[in-house]
Write a protein that binds this DNA or RNA. Structure first.
Lengths: 280, 280
DNA sequence: TGCCTTTTTGAAAAATATTTTCGAACTTAT
DNA sequence: ATAAGTTCGAAAATATTTTTCAAAAAGGCA
């Protein structure tokens, strides 16, 4: 329930002297500490059982045993070195591990932050759309292109363009019975916002994939999906987010495909075959 | 220490009636059980505290609390449903989880299968290349395009084209002091092999990103990187592999960038800034 | 600084939780 | 059907945790 390290962080500012001593011990020897009962822990740390009991409650646990359980459950802290800044001194192997770890982490956090209600709405718009517009500028165009490759093989007609002006023209043809998936990492790119404005004017349901939940674009969206990647991590957050953004597109596609297919069994097999054929 | 499920298996043959009742409850509600103290567990299960205490010792734990801890630590059996076929009956949430899980899994396996020696070689060719050709057809073109977006901002000159014939023309200009990164998921596409043939003829170091380690293309490569995604998993392995292939490209790029940058500090800062600017 | 208030702390008492004892109920073997 | 062994829970015994209370330490203020 309450992760020990999290609880500790919350309470940290008001730690007294004995409590600090105790907290330090718990952090450095979580294994030994979780084995011991309150009396043994008292001897180990030189802190009275009374204080230990009170400490547990202060952290928000109902009793000492609950703290013990939290301690034992608290995930072994992830290999910090894998989350460190890439360094020219790292071996090629370490660098690869760090990069993959960041990507995996981006996917995990993105999934955790995924809004199921928005997803259901978006899928509904997509599957019922007469046409689906896929747009994105710069590196985000990759996400749109990926979606294009995927949706091209389904029964849903798609509109895509690499060039901004072509995207604008394509977007002009969309209406209330269509849908638009627009990707922009910053969510503030003015061309992307122009596309979103167009969608709003024409009452096209607007699905946004972005890295910035508070951006103008996210606020304009009828359904927004946020690709989360650690900002601080050696400044290439934008690069890792791409993977997460593609996974979001992948999710929109797969669910839409599954749901349209389930309606008609023969079509199901056909589209499934085309999914397989999507790549060579 | 002693995993609960393992201990239970050992003791299973000599479980009495009440103990079976208890064991069943612990297995089906490990969460509720581990929250409760011995008295609460007694009420939940209809087994006396005496029997519960004896049960704990019978399984080899020194006391009831130790059993509780083991219970809470016992790795929750991996949610098999998350690796199952996507089903139209799944909730949107479950579908999303399955898709992300597959993607994460693809990254993990790909990392585990990564050949560090090949990576070092490839990075060396890339950083010393006069020109870097980035090619790929169909959906694999996305990987090439992603690489193009990335390498474009470094000091390494890049050649990319969306169209196959343009790719052929660009490849004709590469020589022994250049490098080519060619992506093909199947590794058997004839156009991709034609590009590889060209590279061989002109002695261009050939770096291949593929999903098929035994393919013709992989065998032709001077350094091959394999994106692994579970074949069996609802037939869309090719889609999940894309993420892994992009991560491989990402890795080639990041390591190359780091290594060229570390040589000249001022350039380092500049290229790092451009990495940030890669996305908008 | 010195006085007062508040906070922290541990010893011991009180409250809780767990284990063991003990005898009854149930099984199994003869 | 009876004896021997086993299982089991109530209650006693023990162990553990929490709370109380008073002393010590820290903080605030004239």
């Amino acid at each position: 329930m309450h992760d020990f390290l999290v609880q500790l962080k919350i309470y940290k500012p008001n730690l007294s002297r004995q409590e600090t001593k105790l907290a330090d011990f718990l952090q450095t020897h979580p294994d030994r500490a979780s084995q011991a009962n309150i009396a043994e822990l008292s001897t180990m740390t030189g802190v009275s059982t009374a204080t230990i009991s009170r400490f547990a409650k202060a952290l928000g646990y109902p009793n000492f045993q609950a703290l013990r359980m939290a301690l034992v459950q608290s995930p072994p802290e992830p290999d910090q070195t894998l989350f460190a800044e890439l360094s020219p001194d790292d071996s090629v192997e370490t660098l690869a591990q760090k990069i993959f770890t960041s990507n995996i982490d981006a996917l995990r956090t993105t999934l955790a932050n995924l809004n199921a209600a928005a997803l259901a709405k978006a899928v509904n718009w997509i599957t019922h759309a007469d046409r689906l517009g896929l747009f994105g500028l710069g590196a985000s165009n990759l996400v749109a292109l990926d979606g294009y490759h995927k949706f091209l093989r389904t029964a849903i007609p798609v509109a895509y363009a690499a060039d901004y002006h072509m995207q604008l023209m394509a977007a002009t043809h969309l209406g209330v019975n269509d849908a638009m998936i627009l990707t922009s990492h910053s969510g503030e790119d003015k061309d992307a916002i122009a596309l979103a404005d167009l969608a709003k004017q024409q009452h096209v349901p607007l699905i946004v994939i972005t890295g910035a939940p508070a951006s103008r674009l996210a606020k304009m969206a009828d359904a927004a999906f946020v690709a989360v990647a650690e900002e601080s991590r050696y400044r290439t957050e934008a690069l890792h987010a791409l993977i997460a953004e593609l996974s979001l597109m992948d999710t929109l596609f797969m669910i839409s495909a599954i749901q349209t297919n389930s309606q008609t069994a023969p079509l199901f097999r056909r589209v499934r075959a085309t999914i397989d054929a999507t790549r060579q």
